[in-house]
Design a protein around this nucleic acid. Structure first.
Lengths: 162, 162
DNA sequence: ACGAGTCAGTTCTGAAATCGAACGTACTTT
DNA sequence: AAAGTACGTTCGATTTCAGAACTGACTCGT
């Protein structure tokens, strides 16, 4: 299966991965959330080859996750900014970072900490229910067929949840 | 840069991606959370080649995300189950699926819906602050150097947040 | 005026990963 | 005995990636 075919599956996971399911794409997005906006800055910070970076920035722009904005005319220079769509990826990035903090941190502890400006505290991200506000645990989630469901294979095979 | 080198960076994002930063790995994990446990079931549902699947299941097992458990002896057969470490990836998967629901769903609407068993409602996952319980927005997060920080490049270049 | 530096890419070649399909092994079912 | 199930491995052809050099348009220092 190719990336393009992945996008056509009636599975939100597959469709999202057709946009961000690549290590460099996610590393680029991490840097975007840290405020990086220019080609050479991405390249130096990530150590990715220029060819790959060029390709990934183009893909993200085409997907509407980044916006390519000119900041000078002669010579033409642009910067890449997160769109609304891109900003909505924040939970994905934070969840990934948090898992690394908990399960992959070395002896020395976490490389970075997050402070919630509105309450002032150092915090961990918690995934909670939009309706009752309580934290969501894996076994408390039931997967139900939605209106956009096609007869694919993204439903539980029989019983759910492992 | 190779995958192995990624794991050695003092960045939780990079370290996590060295484990799950691959489209097939994430598709396998999606199916794990839907209750899929056996080789051929993964293969049929995902359409991935058997070689890749074999490799990814081995990697996930080595990383402690899945556990390979025998369910019969003659012939020896195993199933792959999420460990505690693996279950902790639930927020990552849910966040990715939710982004797809919001930004990649077709005309027909979402392919699947989630029900929160403890409150009974259909819900969206919301990332909130472990300290005050409020939803976390991109601009409300400040990144701070932690104890495990090495002089790498995962801090904001100057000012934060885009 | 001249070379050095910045910024945003493109182009090249060899190395590595991936695809699709077939094959192997050890059982169970018909 | 033949077909099916389960879990992989192996193989050659294709695709992607890494590392490095190169282009082009401009700016800055001397």
């Amino acid at each position: 299966m190719k990336w393009d075919e992945l996008a056509e599956q009636s599975c939100s996971m597959a469709r999202t991965l057709s946009v961000i399911g690549d290590r460099w794409t996610l590393m680029v997005l991490r840097d975007c959330f840290l405020g990086v906006r220019r080609f050479d800055d991405f390249q130096r910070r990530l150590g990715v080859t220029r060819g790959i970076l060029s390709d990934r920035l183009r893909q993200l722009t085409e997907a509407g996750v980044l916006d390519k904005v000119a900041y000078q005319d002669r010579p033409p220079r642009h910067e890449y900014r997160l769109t609304r769509r891109g900003l909505d990826l924040h939970p994905v990035i934070l969840s990934i970072v948090h898992w690394g903090d908990v399960h992959m941190a070395g002896e020395a502890g976490r490389p970075i900490l997050h402070r919630h400006k509105t309450c002032g505290a150092l915090f961990d991200p918690v995934l909670s229910c939009s309706e009752c506000g309580e934290p969501v645990r894996p076994h408390d989630v039931e997967v139900i067929r939605g209106p956009g469901h096609a007869a694919d294979r993204h439903m539980p095979p029989d019983e759910a949840e492992g």
